[in-house]
Design a protein around this nucleic acid. Sequence first.
DNA 1: GGTTGTTTAAGGGCCC
DNA 2: GGGCCCTTAAACAACC
Length: 211
Amino acid sequence: MNSIPSTYSNNDLWSSASYARRYATSKPPYSYISLIAHAINNSPERMCTLSQIYQYIQDHYAYYRQNQQRWQNSIRHSLSFNDCFVKVPRHADRPGKGSYWTLHPDSGNMFENGCYLRRQKRFKIKDKTSSPPTEPNLSIKTIDSPTLPMASSEQYFCPYKTEYSTQIYDSNNNGLHYETNHQYLFQQILPTDATFRLDNLFNYYDQTDSS
DNA sequence: GGTTGTTTAAGGGCCC
DNA sequence: GGGCCCTTAAACAACC
């Protein structure tokens, strides 16, 4: 990885065409986890499909327009392997391939030490079957729904799907029977939420391909 | 058949 | 040195 010359400020870093050409194809100093997180955070609904994550990374970093099979496999592995990424089922109104991916609300700022290549500590969910975690700046909304509602004006996070049985009396058939239902718990992100902002640090790299 | 998602394994690098 | 994190590769299943 080529280092950034100290003679350049962030503002004029990419104003040099030759510099941009030289560094646009070098590997960005971010781990796949930070790239995925940034793609998610920069999406309007703070959730992305896998293909949207691919697209975001390729759009912003020329380096990832090559050897796609290699890094895309790594992206998929990162999404599955890391608890900080949560899979969100597609809404029935939005048919298509693959689920949406979002950040676990408790993952917070995983790169608060300023290093985007290696986290201080990997985020892990202690007990995946327990109730959703809470944070002071989050409010919990409980919605009875078999599918995930996609609200455009509100941000929903973290679909904790639970299954429960309801006792139903049907006089026409055999009386009592049980019906299995699903319920989702959502964490709604309030406007004051400011977790995981990588914007500043990503700024100069985001400009690489606009040249 | 291609894409998506999961899992396992190995190797390199960083930190205590 | 050991533990942890990250990357890469690969195999496989499920889905569209």
